[in-house]
C-alpha cells in the first residue's frame, strides 16, 4: 500500500472548497452584466480554465527541461501529468467559450485569436500522446516527450500573435454585432480573482495526483518485472 500523503489530501480539500466557493460567489454575489445577462457568468470559469491550461503547458515544458538536465523519471511524470491536465482545462475553456459565443455572437464558433490558439494548442498536445504511445521505452518517451513539450511551448505565443495579427487585417464580421467587452464591477473582480485562485489550486492538486499515479504505475511495473 502506498503511504498516505496528508499534504496532498489537504490540497484536494482546498481545491474542492475553492471551486465550490467561487461557484457560490459567481451565482449569488456577482451582478448580472447589463448587455449580456446571465450568460456572461461563464466568463469566470472560462478565463480561469484557459489560464490553468496555459500554465500547465508551461509547467510541462519546465519539467521537460528539468528531466533533460537531471534524467530523473519523476520530472517526466510531472511533465506528462501537466499536459494531460492541461488538455482537460483547454477543452473546458473551448467549450465554455462556445457556450458564451452562441448567444452573444450568434454562432458556436468564431475564429477569434484566443479561442483558435487554444484549439491549435489542443491539437499540438494531443499529438504529444501519439508520440509517446509510439515509443517503446519509458526513457525514450521521457526524452523525446521533453523535447516536444519544449518545442511546443515556443510556438504557442507565435501562434497567438500570428492569429491576432491575421485578425486585425481580416476582422471577423459577427452576425449579430455583439461584443464580449464589458467593464467589471468590484464584485465581479472579487469573484474573478477567487475563480483564478481556485483553478490554480485545482490545477496543482490534479497535477500532483496524476504525477503520483504515474509514480505508482512505474513502481508497479518494476515489481512485476
Amino acid at each position: 500500500m502506498p503511504k498516505k500523503q496528508p499534504l496532498l489530501t489537504a490540497l484536494n480539500i482546498l481545491a474542492a472548497a475553492g471551486v465550490l466557493g467561487a461557484l457560490i460567489l459567481i451565482l449569488f454575489f456577482t451582478p448580472e452584466e447589463a448587455q449580456m445577462g446571465a450568460v456572461q457568468k461563464v466568463f469566470y470559469f472560462h478565463v480561469s480554465s484557459a489560464w490553468a491550461g496555459m500554465l500547465s503547458f508551461v509547467i510541462a515544458a519546465g519539467a521537460g527541461a528539468l528531466y533533460l538536465a537531471k534524467r530523473e523519471l519523476r520530472w517526466d511524470w510531472l511533465s506528462l501529468a501537466s499536459i494531460e491536465v492541461g488538455i482537460m482545462f483547454g477543452l473546458a475553456a473551448i467549450l465554455s467559450g462556445m457556450i458564451w459565443a452562441q448567444p452573444i455572437w450568434n454562432t458556436w464558433w468564431v475564429w477569434e485569436p484566443r479561442l483558435t490558439t487554444t484549439a491549435i494548442m489542443e491539437l499540438i498536445y494531443l499529438a504529444y500522446f501519439i508520440l509517446r504511445g509510439a515509443l517503446n521505452t519509458p526513457e525514450a518517451q521521457a526524452r523525446l516527450g521533453a523535447v516536444y513539450a519544449i518545442v511546443s511551448v515556443i510556438t504557442v505565443p507565435l501562434t497567438f500573435f500570428s492569429i491576432r495579427l491575421y485578425r486585425t487585417i481580416h476582422p471577423v464580421v459577427f452576425v449579430s454585432g455583439g461584443s464580449t467587452a464589458f467593464t467589471m464591477s468590484p464584485r465581479m473582480w472579487t469573484a474573478f480573482i477567487v475563480s483564478l485562485a481556485a483553478f490554480t489550486v485545482l490545477l496543482a492538486a490534479l497535477i500532483w495526483n496524476r504525477t503520483r499515479l504515474a509514480a505508482l504505475q512505474s513502481a508497479n511495473a518494476q515489481e512485476e518485472n
Partner: peptide, 26 residues
C-alpha cells in the same frame, strides 16, 4: 523525432502542421 517512433514517418505531419501554423500564416 518522429523517425524514432514505431509508426516512423507517419507521425511527422501530425507533429509538424500544428507547430508550423504560425510560420504558414505569416
Amino acid at each position: 523525432l518522429s523517425i524514432q517512433t514505431r509508426t516512423r514517418d507517419v507521425l511527422l505531419p501530425v507533429l509538424l502542421y500544428p507547430l508550423a501554423l504560425p510560420v504558414l500564416i505569416a
